[in-house]
Design a protein around this nucleic acid. Structure first.
Length: 100
DNA sequence: CAATTGACGTAGT
DNA sequence: CACTACGCCAATT
């Protein structure tokens, strides 16, 4: 299984109302230092319908990237709509992150 | 094929 | 808390 496929598989499993971090995904995929690559993979996102890339945030809970229309703003809206707990523009990881 | 770029993370100042 | 410096990986040029 390629690294990228692992990453996609992991993100597919992220439940609604919960989020994960690039670093966490990288770690689960096998490379704890590939957080940056995870972001690159999101940009390549082969299937936005299947892969909820908006549920992936930085280790601090900060929303970064998101090339789709609306950018960060839109991403935040979507997460709020799913029930993710926010603190300003930052996600409250202690409550919404899958792996605590 | 080498160099650049960037949706990252950690540690130090 | 902000800013910098370094390391890492994959995609793009």
């Amino acid at each position: 299984m390629d690294f990228k496929n692992k990453v996609y598989s992991i993100i597919e499993r992220v439940p609604k109302g919960k989020v994960t971090t690039y670093g966490q995904v990288a770690r689960l995929a096998g490379n704890s230092k590939a957080a940056r690559a995870v972001g690159a993979l999101m940009k390549n996102n082969p299937d936005t319908k299947r892969i909820p890339c908006h549920r992936v945030v930085s280790s601090k809970g900060k929303l970064t990237g998101f090339s789709a229309k609306g950018g960060i703003e839109k991403k935040k809206e979507m997460l709020l709509d799913e029930g993710v707990n926010f603190v300003g523009d930052i996600v409250d990881l202690s409550r919404s992150q899958i792996i605590k």
